[in-house]
Design a protein around this nucleic acid. Sequence first.
DNA 1: TAGATTGTTAATCGATTAACAATC
DNA 2: TAGATTGTTAATCGATTAACAATC
Lengths: 198, 198
Amino acid sequence: MERLPLYLSFLRKSEEDNASFASSRDVARALDLNEEQVRKDLAMVSSSPGRPGKGFELKGLIADIQRVMGLGEPLEAVLSGAGNLGRALLGFQGFEQCGVRIIAAFDIDPDLVGKEIGGRMVFDADRLPLFCNNLKVPIGIIAVPASFARKVCDDMVEGGVRAIWNLTSAHLTVPEGVIIKEDNPAVRLGVIAMELRK
Amino acid sequence: MERLPLYLSFLRKSEEDNASFASSRDVARALDLNEEQVRKDLAMVSSSPGRPGKGFELKGLIADIQRVMGLGEPLEAVLSGAGNLGRALLGFQGFEQCGVRIIAAFDIDPDLVGKEIGGRMVFDADRLPLFCNNLKVPIGIIAVPASFARKVCDDMVEGGVRAIWNLTSAHLTVPEGVIIKEDNPAVRLGVIAMELRK
DNA sequence: TAGATTGTTAATCGATTAACAATC
DNA sequence: TAGATTGTTAATCGATTAACAATC
């Protein structure tokens, strides 16, 4: 699944170069992947079979990947925490390309509440549960200091959010049925360091 | 490997609570992991065997994990890009706990160069290769706009950096022997969205 | 001795890689 | 027909999970 966005961006680039077919080998080389793996992935998502000797028809393949990724109708997300990390996310281009749109931010800092950052309004953190409930927001992003993560997570669950992306160093437990993905930056960098030491 | 920091933080907490032993089950429950998996992990890193009926001795286990993670002598890292994301990383507590210390930041913005952020100096981006070479910095972090990522990556390789953490949406190819880890935020959030759609 | 928890060995699983016949 | 590339089937691999005898 995590390779789909990579495929998509490469295939779009190829299309701009006026190509009309792409072979697994082309894709694999451009993205430093295994050719067989790419072939298998593309066969999974493609609705029409690839043409032996030529590859996959670009237009159809791009449409298929977009369909699988749910593009065109991005899922909405709220962001809690409008500090440096939150602002970085609000400024990030590319979420829409991956099927997600951040529609609002929340913070407890009165100086930030009411401001607009990257085109999105910052609301008072207290209003997060009601906001999510009313708008049926399915995704929550936690970008607050670790000590507030537990509270924010609870608020999101209360608001009916179905998936949470936790960027803090706090470990969060959520009720059954809620998806949580923890991306602790320190852990990710730490793994690189450990690989280096070996 | 990515579980080691989690173990460490839980074990430290236990130690503060005046416990002297921790069983695999205790750890597994606290971190929502499989008991057998935890046992296997701990057996891997622990220099002294666990005590059947009691668990692992906290003090020794903590020391062992720290040793494996290389704590006490964190690896040094440079950060390229002192925008919102860069500043978030500079403010992040917890990298040291994972064996890495960011020692300097680099940016092309003259308004930022010469400033200090989170106790680290911001240097002109041009000076990155020389800086890394002189100080034998092993790790580089890329937090610039995607369009600059290729150039920054080349600079880091030129500077002798041996591992790169790429936080942009650009796909980077590096020479053999250099470790690269790509954490495209849009991809990570996109995967969550795809899981949600299923 | 009894109970809890370990370490080890085997089974399972999903993902990746390899091999090769099918086909445009 | 020949060549390139596909789709499929089997082999490999690493990680996780399960089972159970060993032991403090």
